[in-house]
Structures are given as structure tokens and as C-alpha cells.
Design a protein around this nucleic acid. Structure first.
Lengths: 154, 154
DNA sequence: ATATTTGCAAACTATTTGCAGTTGT
DNA sequence: ACAACTGCAAATAGTTTGCAAATAT
């Protein structure tokens, strides 16, 4: 049976508190507050366990490493800020996508990712400030990438 | 200036002939026909070069390694077969996605991936056979994955 | 002639796993 | 007690890079 270790609790907390999907590295950093000495291997092991338990859900975005969010809530999509790279949940869904596939193809599911500026990162041009988003934090800027990569960092 | 080596030509051909986005490994295998001894490092280097040249475009799908397709053609999406894992182009687009984002968020772009059965892989249940798709080939079946992974194989 | 390209092997990054010691129940 | 869990280090897998030899122009 599953045990409640200091580490596992800190990892759960970190993700719950963030309010947005986190990268394993972000989970590590956030959870180390409640579990000094926490190692990245333990983070990965717990993410997997909590995933199997159904407590967490993996958020896979194109060209990004997996992030993790609390499992609750139904079908939804995500928004990634082009300035700070952070990901946010989007509850809406366009639906009616089955008809987009080529004839002979059967659509059973779909993934949608929106890109742009989160409420914290100023608009491309025009106004100056904006309201704050929930899972807020100082925003770093994104770097370039490889051939199309299979991993990311920050 | 760019040179036309036997390897680069074979790589271009392989992708053009496939008619669907290919993984670096698939490019290697297909291109080795026209360039014996071709190494994976050269494939990666050429993918990057052709990408920079604007000849190719990276196709990034959630939780998948990057695939590559010819750059021509405008905005479009992709369909991934849940049975054979192969990816196909989808020319349609639902549009009107800007309104889905939370207030304060600015949508500038989006990615959409459809999942289901390609015309070659029989429907979940019901009929028996189906028509053939263009970039056809025998279909292997998919395996499970890790925590949410950052790479894939076959 | 010479700058680009190639193959090989080593380097990297993200993630996983073996192992021996630690801890929750 | 004892199975679940942890940290560390080594192992994977995909991708990138240094280097000396090969090649296109």
C-alpha cells in the first residue's frame, strides 16, 4: 500500500499550489521547500506513482517535456505563453473536429494547444500592463531550440 | 554555399517520397537506400540545415519526437493513428480559437492534433477492411510509455 | 584549392533503474 | 518487522558536437 512520506506529500503540495502544470524540475524546486534533500529521481518516481494512482495527469505539449497537473476536471486543453513558457489550463473546447480528418480516417480524440501571451506577459504591442493570473511568478524568457528537440529546460 | 551531397539528396528524397512526416530514424532507414553508410548524425545535421533553409518543417506532436515534412503548403494540422502511430497531414482547421482562452490572455497561434484510425488501420469494431492511404506501409503496433516521456521509438 | 560535409565516437539532456540504506505503518 | 521509499550513481535513448578524413564546386 502507498505510504505518505515527507517527499510525496511535498510533491503533491507543490503541484496543487502551482495551479498550473509543472515540469519535473519545477516540481523538484518547489517541493524541496517541504522536503529538503529531495532528489530528482524521487520526483520522477512519485510522478509516475501518482499518475498510476490517478491523482495526476500528464500534460504533453508539442515539443515540450511532460508537465504534471492534478487529475480532477474533465476534458480540457492548454495555453502556453510564448514569453514565459508557462502553461495554463483552458476549459473550453472547439468540438466538432471529427469532420476535419481525411475521408477514411476515424477521429477518436484530439489535443489542442493555444499559444500567445498570458495575462502577466504584456501584449506584443499596444497597452502596457495587464491583470495577474492565478499561478503567478516572475517570468523568465524562452531560448531557442534544436532540430525540433525532444526536451526542454529553462 | 550549400552543396548537393549524395547523403543530402537521399534525405530530401526520402522525406518527399514518404508523403507524411518522418522521424529521424525513419529518414535514416529510408535514405540509406540512396546513400549507403549514411549515419544518423548526418541525418540530424541535414534535417537542421534543410530546416534552416526553409525546405523542411518540424512536426511536433504531444509526447512525440520531432518528425519532418516538406515545408510547402500553408497552415495545417496532423492526425496520428492510434494503431500504427504514423502521422498524416490534415488540411482543415477549426479556426476561431482565440475566444477559448481565459480573459486577459492573447491567442496568437495554435496546434491541433487529431487521434484515431488511419484509413489503413481497421476501425475499432464493425467493418473489416478499408481503403489505402497514400504514404502507406505495413503497420506495427504501439507500445506503452513512461511517465509521459520525452522520446519515442518503434 | 578549399570550404563544406561526413562518419565515428564522445558529450549532453531528460528520464529510468539497481542497490543499499531509511522510514512509514 | 518489513515492505515501501529514498538518495546516489550508473544506465538509457534521442540528439548534438569535436575532429580528422572525404568530397563538391
Amino acid at each position: 500500500m502507498e505510504r505518505n512520506t515527507r517527499q510525496r506529500t511535498a510533491i503533491r503540495e507543490a503541484i496543487a499550489q502551482a495551479g498550473r502544470p509543472l515540469l519535473p524540475q519545477e516540481v523538484l524546486e518547489a517541493a524541496q521547500a517541504g522536503a529538503p534533500g529531495l532528489s530528482i529521481a524521487t520526483v520522477y518516481r512519485n510522478l509516475r506513482t501518482l499518475l498510476d494512482e490517478g491523482e495526476l495527469r500528464a500534460v504533453l505539449l508539442p515539443g515540450e517535456n511532460a508537465r504534471y497537473e492534478l487529475a480532477g476536471g474533465g476534458h480540457h486543453h492548454h495555453f502556453q505563453c510564448l514569453a514565459c513558457d508557462r502553461v495554463f489550463e483552458v476549459d473550453a473546447c472547439p468540438g466538432n473536429l471529427a469532420s476535419l480528418a481525411p475521408p477514411g480516417f476515424i477521429v477518436e480524440d484530439h489535443d489542442l494547444t493555444l499559444y500567445g501571451r498570458c495575462s502577466e506577459c504584456a501584449p506584443p504591442r499596444g497597452a502596457k500592463a495587464a491583470g495577474r493570473a492565478k499561478g503567478a511568478a516572475p517570468h523568465t524568457h524562452r531560448e531557442s531550440q534544436g532540430t525540433g528537440r525532444a526536451h526542454k529546460h529553462r
